[in-house]
């Protein structure tokens, strides 16, 4: 697991923490974040490889997601998103094309409430 460790030369900065972050929590976080970061890297690379071979990537992850609602609302280049309604009919949340789960060709699952959303047919 320790391949995730950063450069050992790093000098600890003493941040004025007013919250007790708990030593165990910090250690675990370093490990998980390493894994999660590596996971992100692998999935991004995998998509690049797929794209290179001309495969459509149906469910692009939010690697580059900056969490901006107004930007996410605009459908991206994914094939699925152009057919998606802007809002989930059940809970009214903005449908995030990158986060909805595809159930079948005409249905996706809302990333928020988990209810099915019908995809508009062209």
């Amino acid at each position: 697991m320790f391949f995730l460790a950063g450069p050992l030369l790093f000098v600890l900065t003493s941040l004025p923490l007013y919250l007790d972050p708990s030593s165990g929590s910090i250690l675990l976080q370093l490990l998980i974040a390493g894994l999660a970061g590596a996971g992100l890297f692998i999935s991004m690379s995998w998509k690049r490889i797929k794209r290179f071979f001309g495969r459509k990537v149906e469910n692009e992850t939010e690697d580059d997601d900056d969490g901006d609602e107004e930007e996410i609302d605009k459908p991206r280049s994914t094939k699925l998103s152009v057919h998606l309604p802007a809002k989930c009919p059940t809970c009214g949340t903005a449908v995030r094309p990158n986060e909805v789960k595809r159930l079948d060709d005409v249905t996706v699952e809302c990333q928020y409430c988990g209810m099915p959303i019908k995809v508009h047919q062209k």
């Binding site: 995730l4 460790a5 950063g6 450069p7 050992l8 030369l9 790093f10 600890l12 030593s23 165990g24 910090i26 250690l27 976080q29 370093l30 998980i32 974040a33 390493g34 894994l35 999660a36 970061g37 590596a38 996971g39 992100l40 890297f41």
Partner: peptide, 15 residues
């Protein structure tokens, strides 16, 4: 606990 380890921004976002 840290033993000098750091965490990259990408990894933090991953977390």
């Amino acid at each position: 606990a840290r033993a000098g380890r750091t965490i990259k921004k990408q990894a933090l976002l991953g977390l």
